[in-house]
Structure formats: C-alpha cells, structure tokens
Design a protein around this nucleic acid. Structure first.
Lengths: 232, 232
DNA sequence: CGTAATCTTGATCTGATTCAAATGTCGTGG
DNA sequence: CCACGACATTTGAATCAGATCAAGATTACG
C-alpha cells in the first residue's frame, strides 16, 4: 500500500474503515495511491484550529482527540471526543468549523483535501463513505443537542459514561471504562462545571452505580440503573 | 423537467439547489429522471418520525419545518428549523434519527432513498452535493451545541434572533424578522422555558435592541448590540 | 362576542454555579 | 525512600440564574 510515513511514525496500526473502503474499490487499482500520511502526535497538541483553511481530513488510528469550539471570552464547548477509526475534518467549506486537539498521544493518517476532492469525482464509493461518516456524525450531534438542552446534571453524566463505554468497544459488560480526558474536558462536554461533574460522580459512586478505580477509570456496576439515569 | 406533482401541489416554486445540481450534470441528460415528487403539507403535520425507516430525502421548497428529538418523558429538543432550499432526511442509516414536523404550510419535494442511492453511484457530483449539505448541517449543529452548552438566556435568544434574521435571507438590514414558530418552539430550541424566553424578549424590548410588531414579528433596531449580546 | 389558546408578568423555589478550602495524585530531586 | 511542590479532584457554603407555579393580558377564532 502506498503510504508515506512521517517523521516519528509507527507502522503498528493500519488505517481501517476509510482505507479499507479505498482498497476494496475494484476500479483502477493501479492508481490507488491516495497520499495518506501517517504520523504520531503527543498529547496536548493542536491538530488544527477553528477558522484555519481546511486542507486535510484525518483518520484517527489510535488515541483520542477532542473537538471544541470557543466563545470570544474563553468559554469552551467540547462537541465531541474522537476515538480510533473515526474521521475528523470533513468540512467541505473553506475552513474548519472547530478546533481539534489531542487528549492522548495519537497516531493519525492525514489525507490532503485537494487529493480527496480529485478522488471523489472518480470514486463514488469513496464519496458515499464520507457521506455515511458525516451522517453518523450528524446523528451523534443531534443526540448531544438533546443532552445539552434537556437533561439535568445526573442524566448528562450518566449519558456521557454510557457513550464512553459504548465507543470503548469491548462489547457489553466490559465494565472497565477508561476516561482519557480530565474533569474539565468532561464538564465542557456536558455543559456543566468541573465541580458539578465531580459531585455527580460521587453521587453515582454513593448509589453504587459506578465505582472509581482511579479518577479516570470507572467501573460500571449497575448498567440498568445507569441506563435509566441517562433517560434513554 | 421530469417531475410528478402530487395531489394538491403548486407549481409556483421550482426546487433550487439540489435539482439544479442534477440538471447541470452533463452526462446522461436523457436519463435525468430523478423521481422527485412535489407536494404540499398543511401546518402542524409530521413528515416523518425518529426511528422510522428512512426511505426519503426531502427538499423544502417553501415554508418551514422543525426537527426535533424527544426524551421518553416528553421533554423535547428542537435541533433545527428548516427553511426553504434546504434538505432534510439525509441519514444513510436505516432510520431517521429525528422527527420532522411542519410549522407552516410547506411545499416539499420528496426523493426516494432507493432512487437516490442508485443515482449516487452514477453521479459523483450529486453525492458531493449531498456531502456538502451534510457538512453544512454539521457546522450549524456545532454552533448550536456551543449555544446550548455555554450561553446564558440572553445570549441564547440573541443568537436565535440573529440566526433567524440570517436565514430569512433579505440581506443585512432587513430589520423585519418573521418568526413562524411559537414561543414553546423557541424555548425548546434554545433549551429554556417559555417563560424565560418571553422575559428575555421583553428585556431586549426594554433595552431598545428589538421591537415586537406582533408576537411573531420582530424588528431588530440595534444590530450591533444584538451581535454583542449573542457573544459572536 | 365569548371562549380557548398563546403570551406575558409576578412570586417563589431549586439545581447548578461560584468561591474557597481540603484532599489526593504524580513527578522530581534531595 | 521520602519530602516537596504543582496540579487535578473532591468537598463545603453561599449565591444566583433559570425553573416552577400561579395569575393576568393579549390574540386568534368560531
């Protein structure tokens, strides 16, 4: 496969869904060369900022990023956490409409927007795959709006935990959920303050629905009640 | 153009962006027949519900719809108001992830998912157009999350008014903004109660930033201050 | 007109924020 | 290994923005 590795890249993980989609196309296998560049970034780095010209689409291979938007006075909304196998940066306008920052060390694969644009015209399936990804993102965004607008603190935190548990894969009953982000990130995601998030965690702890191994490792003890608490 | 008109259809408006995209494709103009069905719906009707199998994509020709999601206990989040020239129902999963209801009488054009799916493989530009629409929706969704999670009542209502003013087209300085939805809809959109929305309107009125011709016709008197109040 | 709905206003209550301090965790260097 | 400091998390007490409950005022409509 025709992939350039950047500076400090690791070859251990191979891009999954997106790349697979490209590889499986029967037509013009010879000209497959989508110039995806795999590279590694340390935790706490900015991949791109809201407003910058959107010249790349990224696939997360391992690690986690946060997507956020800021108000002029510094208030921050985290609109999503992006785990492995997901794309970021689909925007198709001239500029990114959000900022992407690494939470952990990540390995990502970068595709240049210009190359993608060219390919999309030749590869209907690629475009459809991107459309599917966008539709999925949109679905998640709608769920989050429901949470932000309607739910109270307990419901928000419960929903957040279930979301994390879900995207941690591991299937049902993988009771150990690891939270790579800090309380401040969680707070900005659910639209509460750090203090309220912390209080809510202890509330869940006291009611024996969860247990905290460490501050960022949650054991879910009672899935059914957590589900109820999330109000769906 | 090959369009069927349903029962009580009006021919006055011709589908814009989406249709135009199809028509402008050079290839296979003969087989252009995308079976779009134009029809009229009265106010207060449900176009489709969250969870139903998503078998259609709709283009709004005139009028306005609301997109909403419900919690089991009836709490409602309106995730968007859809004006003319916009698409609803891009989901690509098996089911709609939200409910669409008419606020005013609307004229819409319905495209069957199956037909669209077939066409997408032949028409890269169509798929790209859908992708662009999805990306735009995603951008708006992110803005709304920022609003729901970070802003206070005044900022929310100000943002809402600016959004409505903006999508009312009419260019800048079209100070008359018509609000086809009721206060309850607005409340569920910005994540407040009807009472708080009402109080906020009077607050804006007293500070001479807006004036209310009627309950659903707002005159924006001071754009700059409204802009500040929205915090961007 | 009169009735029902929507919208506005007022008084009170409450969940979340704010401010402040204590506790816990981790890495560094003595 | 332990002491120290920096930082994240938790807890507590006071305050406040928005919700709730309860009337009025206004508009729409048969």
């Amino acid at each position: 496969m025709h992939v350039q590795f950047a500076s400090n890249a690791t070859a251990r993980a191979v891009p999954q869904g997106f790349f697979a989609c490209l590889a499986s196309e029967t037509e013009s296998m010879g000209a497959l060369a989508l110039p995806g560049v795999v590279c590694k970034k340390p935790a706490g780095e900015t991949l791109f900022r809201e407003g910058e010209t959107a010249d790349g689409v990224y696939e997360v291979i391992s690690g986690m990023l946060r997507i956020c938007k800021l108000l002029p006075d510094g208030r921050r909304q985290i609109t999503g956490f992006v785990p492995a196998e997901r794309l970021i940066g689909i925007s198709l306008g001239g500029t990114y409409s959000y900022t992407a920052e690494t939470i952990t060390e990540v390995v990502i694969c970068c595709y240049r927007r210009s190359a993608l644009d060219r390919l999309m015209l030749e590869r209907p399936k690629l475009t459809r795959h991107l459309l599917a990804a966008a539709a999925q993102e949109l679905h998640v965004a709608h769920e989050q709006m429901l949470m932000l607008g309607c739910k109270d603190a307990l419901e928000k935190v419960a929903s957040f935990l279930l979301l994390m548990a879900g995207q941690q894969g591991g299937g049902i009953d993988a009771t150990e959920v690891h939270l790579p982000m800090d309380r401040h990130d969680i707070a900005d995601y659910v639209g509460l303050t750090v203090e309220t998030v912390s209080r809510t965690f202890t509330r869940l702890k006291r009611s024996k629905v969860i247990a905290l191994r460490t501050a960022n490792c949650v054991e879910i003890c009672d899935w059914d009640r957590l589900d109820e608490m999330a109000s769906r």
